[in-house]
Each structure stands twice: as structure tokens, then as C-alpha cells.
């Protein structure tokens, strides 16, 4: 019992073996989700990344029952969305907000009118609605656009209105379906930072899907990579960046200008192994290489490398050549391991 309660408090979202198949017009079945297990902690910013057609949208839409799963359980805040219906489903949905790639604002309503919509649906009084709308306008910094019409706004402003509308009813979760994919890079960053700010000020849990690694890197703490309806990688963003296991993960990381290419012409000197050092967080900020040189007497020849800023920490990798006597080299390797740097020897002749 306690374990169940505990899970419920910590894990806001828990999907168990979720399967979703669509019947395609030619009678074939499309397996969009093939047994997804996934959990999202309360207060997290959780990224779901994958190529087009991987099943990201379906996964998100299963969470608020825009799609019914073919089988499996979809627990959101202690309710199994998969089996709800009628008023229960409606109320459960009011606990979740959603924003879309193409905003989906009501063209018949002003900015304020759009934000008021979910509150009208929840039958709040006019006074309460008015207060809450101003509060939301302030949150997304659009007070001066209260009476504007969606058609008069830029893409970024429209998405801000959509965010305000999605959060007006104080949901526990905000689901974002490619929310920045229709925006230019600068607007994307400002929307992402707004989401981050809202996450830390209101504690709302954010689940976002994207096909852009940059988005995940910018704000997510945990992530999964979806491929062909299957989770092929999951964990803290940092870990996935540091040790990508799946092919898809590596491809996504390749899109970023960082991973050292192993095919590169690297100088091969007998007795001087080539090593990739992978750092995260603290290690990336410490002068580990120079310390290693000082304490072990090894020579470190840096061949390539990069340090990447993630959400709140930094990860990096360096391809280096270690020279010296065997003792010095082994000492250096041990020093790196001891200080939280993971090591991959790519050539040792």
C-alpha cells in the first residue's frame, strides 16, 4: 500500500505496456506504439524524442485519451486514463493542458477570450475568470495583447497564448506536441525558456515531444527516445548524452556538432593509447586533465573535444592521446575513473 502511494506521489505519469494499433484503410494494421513503459516524475520536464512517424504524437495523445490505447494502462495522477469515460474523463482532462505545433487557437475569440475558454468550461464565475485571465496574461507577458485577435499575433505570441490557455485551469501536466517546431530558432528558445520558468515557478510537470535534440538539450531533465513505437533509450538527458546506446540516439547526437568521429585520422603511436574521456556535470567544470598530468606525470595530447551545455549541467568529451610509461598511463586512467570521468579506449597499439 505504501509503495503504491509513494509511487503515486513521486510518479505523476506511469504508462504500462501501452499498445496502440491503427487500422489502415487497406486493412493492414499500423503499430504506432508497441508496448511502451514509461514514467514521469512530478515536476519534471520530460522529453520524448524520435524521428517522424516514431509514434511520439500517438504516445502523447494516449496520455489525455485523444487516442484510446489498444491495451495497457495510462496512469496520470492516480487515474487510469485508459478506462475513464464521460464526466470522469472530462474532469481528468481538466487536470492536463496541451499545446500544439499549430497553436489551435479559437479564431472567433480574442486573446483574453481564448484564455477564458477552459475556465468557462469549468463553470467559474465571471469575476474569477477575469482575475485568472489577467494572471495568465502576466505569466506569458502578453498583457498588452489582451484584446488582440489571434490573427494579429506572431507565431511565438500565439504559442504564448496557447500556453496561457492550457495552464489557466491549473493543470498538473502540460503536454507539448512539437510546440516549437513551427517557430524560428530565436522564438523557439524564448518559448522553451518560458516553459522552463513556468515549470520552476508553478511546479507543473511538462512532457514535450520533439524531433529536435536541441529542444531536449535545452530544457529537459529526463528523456526517452522512441523508435518505431518502442522506447529504445531512457534516462536522465545527461546520461543519454554521455553514453548513447541506441543507433537512433547516436544519430541524434551526431546532428549536434560534438561527437568525435572515430574514423578521423588520429595519430597512432605505439605505446600511446587513444582514449575518449566523457565528463558530466562537476567533472566537466574541474581542471581534471591538468590535475591528471600533475599527479601522474602522463602527457595528454588533446586531439578533439567539446563541452556541451545541458539544462543545468554540462557534459563533454575529449579525444586524447596519452603518452608516457605504462605506469603513468595506467595511473592517469585510474585517476580519470576515480574522478567521475568515463573512459573508452579506442586504439591501443
Amino acid at each position: 500500500m505504501w509503495e503504491g502511494l509513494f509511487r503515486e506521489v513521486i510518479l505523476l505519469i506511469e504508462l504500462k505496456n501501452v499498445v496502440k494499433s491503427f487500422a489502415s484503410p487497406d486493412g493492414m494494421e499500423v503499430h504506432a506504439l508497441r508496448g511502451i513503459d514509461l514514467s514521469v516524475e512530478t515536476g519534471d520536464i520530460f522529453g520524448i524524442i524520435g524521428l517522424s512517424g516514431a509514434g511520439k504524437s500517438t504516445l502523447l495523445r494516449v496520455m489525455n485519451r485523444l487516442e484510446s490505447p489498444s491495451s495497457g494502462e495510462v496512469w496520470i495522477g492516480g487515474r487510469n486514463m485508459a478506462i475513464l469515460s464521460g464526466d470522469e474523463l472530462r474532469t481528468a482532462r481538466q487536470d492536463m493542458g496541451m499545446i500544439f505545433q499549430h497553436f489551435n487557437l479559437l479564431s472567433s475569440r480574442s486573446v483574453s477570450g481564448n484564455i477564458a475558454y477552459p475556465l468557462e468550461v469549468q463553470r467559474l464565475s465571471t469575476g474569477e475568470i477575469k482575475d485568472r485571465v489577467s494572471e495568465m496574461l502576466r505569466l506569458v507577458e502578453l498583457e498588452d495583447k489582451a484584446d488582440a485577435w489571434p490573427s494579429q499575433l506572431s507565431g511565438g505570441q500565439k504559442q504564448r497564448v496557447a500556453i496561457a490557455r492550457a495552464l489557466a485551469g491549473r493543470p498538473k501536466v502540460l503536454l507539448c506536441d512539437e510546440a516549437t517546431s513551427a517557430l524560428d530558432p530565436r522564438t523557439t528558445r524564448s518559448i522553451l525558456h518560458l516553459l522552463e520558468r513556468i515549470n520552476s515557478s508553478t511546479g507543473v510537470t511538462i512532457v514535450l515531444i520533439t524531433h529536435e535534440m536541441d529542444v531536449v538539450r535545452e530544457i529537459c531533465r529526463n528523456m526517452v527516445i522512441l523508435e518505431d513505437g518502442v522506447v529504445v533509450e531512457s534516462g536522465p538527458v545527461k546520461d543519454v548524452f554521455l553514453n548513447p546506446k541506441s543507433r537512433t540516439a547516436k544519430e541524434f547526437l551526431d546532428d549536434l556538432p560534438r561527437t568525435p568521429s572515430q574514423d578521423e585520422e588520429l595519430p597512432k603511436i605505439v605505446g600511446s593509447p587513444l582514449v575518449i574521456l566523457r565528463f558530466d556535470g562537476d567533472a566537466a567544470d574541474m581542471p581534471i586533465v591538468s590535475q591528471a598530468i600533475k599527479t601522474t606525470g602522463v602527457d595528454v595530447n588533446i586531439l578533439s573535444g567539446e563541452i556541451d551545455s545541458l539544462r543545468s549541467s554540462r557534459v563533454g568529451n575529449l579525444t586524447v592521446q596519452l603518452s608516457g610509461n605504462r605506469e603513468e598511463i595506467e595511473g592517469a586512467m585510474e585517476y580519470f575513473s576515480r574522478n567521475g570521468v568515463s573512459l573508452e579506449v579506442i586504439w591501443n597499439g
Binding site: 489525455n64 485523444l66 472530462r90 474532469t91 481528468a92 482532462r93 481538466q94 492536463m96 493542458g97 496541451m98 500544439f100 499549430h102 489551435n104 487557437l105 479559437l106 479564431s107 475558454y117 477552459p118 468557462e120 468550461v121 469549468q122 496557447a162 490557455r165 492550457a166 485551469g169
Partner: peptide
């Protein structure tokens, strides 16, 4: 547009709304 209707559905609207 279907997307606009979906946005309304996920905000917990009644059919009447």
C-alpha cells in the same frame, strides 16, 4: 479545423460547450 476541436476536447469541454 480538427486541431481546434481537439484543443477544446482536451480542455475537458462538454459536447454542448
Amino acid at each position: 479545423p480538427m486541431g481546434v476541436v481537439e484543443a477544446a476536447i482536451v480542455m475537458g469541454s462538454r459536447t454542448r460547450d
